[in-house]
Nucleic acid binder design. Structure first.
Length: 237
DNA sequence: AAAAAACGCAACCGCGGAATC
DNA sequence: CGATTCCGCGGTTGCGTTTTT
């Protein structure tokens, strides 16, 4: 079928956003929310397409966005997560509160990729298959760990609490950071009860389980996992 | 000092899938 | 139940800035 364009392209602004546009968008969303991105720019009086407004809000205007350079811990976490998840930037961003998928993607492409051995970079077609393998490995690993003790992979569960603490109105609609997102990408075989059970397991006192856990703790937790070599079983990308 | 190259970031594009009609 | 709409994601591009020659 023929896809309708996301918006009428004629007469709309493109390129850099002006402070005035930012102001209009932010104040409109603050007042009315963003239930319908397509209709939002017209109602707000912006000469932008809905997609553009959404991107601007998600990446720069919404509350809780952390600006500035990535810390070493954040970079290491991105590398580690990328090893497991591949180019699933939204999933990686879920683990780094305050960072956006676009920002992480940029950091990866401009800085972090260079740290890798070039031989580990697969052609695109192979990477897709590898990614699914990694996901399956993660789920197997986390299932096994959960059956013994509090899983090191309980970060999936913690994702929800992390997002909740952001006070982000966006949670209600789009960038959910929820279990559904995980399921969307091919891990349906994991029963949802797994996550709640994991959360409530005895001795599950990982810092990640704390709703208001600071990001630094998240990062150090990741580093501990990888430094301990607990993930060595995963295939390299 | 100027030109070229490299870099980094913000934004756009197109696709897939969920939701709705 | 197929058609359509909308959202979100990942890949890519454009352009300003910085570094190198």
């Amino acid at each position: 079928m023929v896809r309708a364009p996301c918006c009428e392209k004629v007469g709309l602004n493109k390129g850099q956003w002006t402070p005035e546009e930012d102001q209009i968008l932010a104040s409109y969303i603050k007042k009315y929310g963003h239930e319908n991105w397509r209709a939002l720019p017209k109602e707000a009086g912006l000469l932008r397409c809905g997609k553009s407004c959404r991107l601007r809000w998600i990446n720069y205007l919404r509350p809780g966005i952390k600006r500035g350079n990535f810390t070493k811990e954040e970079e290491d976490a991105i590398i580690s997560l990328h090893q497991m998840l591949g180019n699933r930037w939204s999933a990686i961003a879920m683990m780094l509160p305050g960072r956006t998928d676009n920002e992480i993607k940029n950091v990866w492409n401009t800085h972090l990729k260079k740290r890798l051995n070039p031989n580990q970079i697969l052609p695109k077609s192979k990477r897709k298959m590898q990614r699914q393998d990694n996901l399956n490995s993660i789920m197997e690993f986390s299932s096994a760990s959960a059956s013994e003790s509090c899983s090191d992979f309980s970060f999936f569960s913690c994702t929800e609490s992390s997002n909740v603490t952001e006070g982000d109105s966006n949670n209600a609609s789009g960038n959910d950071g929820s279990l559904e997102s995980i399921h969307d990408h091919g891990v349906e075989e994991i029963d949802e009860s797994f996550w709640t059970e994991t959360l409530s397991m005895n001795g599950c006192d990982s810092p990640l389980m704390v709703a208001d856990s600071p990001i630094e703790e998240d990062m150090s937790f990741w580093l501990r996992i990888f430094e301990a070599g607990e993930l060595q079983g995963f295939p390299e990308i």
